[in-house]
Write a protein that binds this DNA or RNA. Structure first.
Length: 416
RNA sequence: GGAGGGUUGGCUGAGCGGUUUAAAGCGACGGUCUCGAAAACCGUUCUCCCGUAAGGGAGGCACAGGUUCAAAUCCUGUACCCUCCGCCA
């Protein structure tokens, strides 16, 4: 959420930002409601002031006068409530303003590649994709997955099941060593967390809703962990708070029924370790932290020796709450292309305003925090890259060095 | 699922229809003092509206409604926490 005063003073900037993010906002309606809202507040305050100035009364005239004021006030308050509700809903539709460094563009074709790391492997034999590898080595059972759990459901099996635990745990430990506080976060969350994070109102179709209990299944630990400090006032010297959080993640994939229908690239349920930072209201510092999150994610891929590239996302492909966003794409030989594996965002105070996460500065002021998050590791998607990049000509799969100890072996091989 | 008890500012905690003012303490910040610090003392420390400002006004006691001339205080609903019973990995 932006500050209505900021919108007032920087209307053209906000309009342009929404346009660049391909979002429509009813600006005239928003400003008209704000004017109306403030006028009503003014009128209500005058009446309340009048009421306050009345003496303690026991006389009938006094009571009658009080009743009259009460009626006038009620009419205004009813209208104000209505106006504020509509105003609040419109405010939720205003996207955040991207940083100047963000390329303006329509869709993923306008993203800017800023870095490549690692050597894309060359194979002198027919490359298998992870689906074929998984089948021949009995690593993922898709047929029984869909039998039991429907479209996009799967069983990880044998070394793939071990590998998911191993790679998540490796990542968890690595970030804990860097000073991040480990969390295992709830996936079942209340609606306010999704509005607060800015997933709602825009992405509501993407989120599972358990209507009986009015709870939602979070698509990422960003949702519960960013809301962790909602409605709280933190202390400046304790910031930034850095978390590494595990959670099962759930996505309806409503807008992409036909996309990536094979394999474990796009799933309704997966596991993820997420990095989340709650920091001070200092954009320069937040950009520094944003780079730190990026470096952490890169380091994990480097440890796994997987080739990747970093993209700076353009305005049209970056999502409503974000000020700036990088995606990391990891090389997937089966696609003969890079595939997104990490997504790194800085939000400024956009989420903190919605979630009321504040802190007290050294000189006693109360400000909204800044929030950031980045994937540390998402599985099984990362398994695609591991299985495919580490495959060998005889159909076996080597294991990344950093996982060998955790898995108790150095390769996946079946007796012929 | 059932029965009780609770939720007050950054924190602890008083107030339980009417001195228009949420007491007091702690913490934090500013100042006086000091070579510097501690202590002591003085001040500031929720939000919104009007105003360039000085300042003025209103709201705020988990959230949302209601009763009343008047609500932190009474009533209703909801959320969450605690104690106990039941069920349960």
């Amino acid at each position: 959420m932006l500050d209505i005063k900021f919108i007032h003073d920087n209307l053209e900037l906000c309009k342009q930002a929404a346009k660049n993010k391909n979002r429509d906002v009813d600006w005239d309606g928003l400003l008209a409601l704000d004017d109306k809202r403030r006028a009503l507040i003014g009128r209500a305050e005058i009446i309340r002031a009048k009421r306050n100035s009345g003496e303690k009364t026991t006389s009938e005239e006094g009571r009658a006068a009080g009743r009259k004021l009460k009626q006038e006030l009620k009419a205004i308050e009813d209208e104000l409530r209505d106006v504020e509700e509509k105003f609040g809903l419109l405010m939720l539709t205003v996207p955040n303003v991207p940083d100047k460094s963000v390329p303006i563009g329509k869709d993923e074709r306008d993203n800017k590649e800023v870095k490549r790391w690692g050597k894309v492997p060359k194979f002198d034999y027919a490359v298998q994709d992870h689906i074929a590898l998984a089948k021949s080595l009995d690593l993922i059972d898709f047929d029984r997955g869909t039998k039991v759990g429907g479209f996009r459901a799967y069983f990880l099996k044998n070394e793939a099941a071990q590998m998911e635990f191993a790679v998540l745990f490796y990542t968890f430990q690595k970030l804990i060593k860097k000073g991040y506080t480990p969390l295992i976060a709830p996936s079942l969350v209340k609606g306010f967390t999704l509005f607060g994070n800015g997933q709602f109102p825009w992405g509501a179709e993407e989120v599972y809703h358990l209507e009986k209990d009015d709870l939602y299944l979070a698509g990422t630990a960003e949702v519960p962990v960013t809301a962790y400090f909602s409605d709280e006032v933190l202390v400046e010297k304790d910031l930034p708070k850095k978390f590494v959080a595990f959670s099962p993640c759930f996505r309806r994939e409503a807008g992409s029924y036909g996309k990536d229908t094979k394999g474990v690239y796009r799933l309704h349920q997966f596991s993820k370790v997420e990095q989340v930072i709650i920091s001070t209201n200092d954009m320069n510092n937040s950009f520094t932290l944003h780079e730190e999150l990026l470096a952490n994610a890169e380091e994990i891929l480097q440890d796994l020796e997987l080739p990747y590239r970093v993209l700076l996302m353009c305005t049209g492909d970056m999502g409503e709450p974000q000020v700036k966003k990088y995606d990391i794409e990891t090389w997937m030989p089966g696609r003969n292309a890079y595939g997104e594996t990490m997504s790194n965002s800085v939000m400024g105070d956009f989420q903190a305003r919605r979630l009321k996460i504040r802190y007290k500065t050294k000189d006693g002021k109360i400000l909204f925090c800044h929030t950031l998050n980045n994937t540390a590791l998402a599985s099984p998607r990362i398994l695609i890259a591991i299985l495919e990049n580490y495959q060998q000509s005889d159909g076996s799969i080597r294991l990344p060095k950093v996982l060998q100890g955790l898995m108790g072996k150095s390769e996946i091989r079946r007796p012929s």
